[in-house]
Design a protein around this nucleic acid. Structure first.
Lengths: 102, 102
DNA sequence: CCAGCTCATCGTAAAATCCCGATGTGAAGG
DNA sequence: CCTTCACATCGGGATTTTACGATGAGCTGG
């Protein structure tokens, strides 16, 4: 992928979108949104993927700032990062407000 | 990429996100949002990419339903698809409304 | 301390993406 | 008709992503 000059804001948004724009990771985000409690290894049960694969997807989401993980004894507990979702929602709102006249 | 059972709505959202989640394509969307007029080959001038590459990025966005292209004589004129941006904004709004309690 | 559980990381093979130059296509203009 | 301009598509090489099994690391109960 060729580098394109990006503002910091653009880079942040694109990084978040890349993280979410994957079937398994989008599903993880939806699961975290739907469950009353922060899930952890339950994600592995919900997805038809190996444990290591799920762990890597979770890492991608965490690195992008979409989710947050806290260690709870032997497990890790994940939950959504509200600010990230709010950021993305606002981003699309701004794009939508300027629109084509054709 | 392993197939994950998706609802039609999920698939649509993920496809749109995949399309936008790329530096060049996100830039294209922002350019279309910023310009007063629908641009066309101007995109090639704005991006440090070959014409064929830009054309392919545009095709990805079009296939995902993010932008719309209309032929205007020898050129093609692109503009944003408002419904797509609204859809994505709403999607993030829904995710945000359900959130972690940690 | 050891066994066992949960989760993270490593090594790597398969697949997808990204980008480009070359070439195809279709509309004007001469 | 022939050229030219704008754009799309093709073929293919480089890079990245995805997924897995195996293994590492940390906590916990016995």
């Amino acid at each position: 992928m060729k580098a394109i000059l990006q503002t910091e804001s653009e880079a942040k948004t694109v990084a978040m979108l890349r993280a979410i724009a994957h079937p398994a990771r989008f599903r993880i985000v939806k699961l975290l949104a739907a469950r009353a409690s922060c899930v952890c290894g339950d994600l592995v049960l919900e997805l038809p993927l190996a444990q290591s694969t799920v762990s890597e997807h979770v890492k991608v989401l965490k690195d992008a700032g979409i989710i947050r993980g806290t260690i709870a004894g032997p497990n890790t507990c994940y939950c959504l990062e509200p600010a990230a979702l709010a950021w993305l929602q606002r981003e699309f709102g701004e794009l939508r407000s300027a629109c084509c006249r054709g």
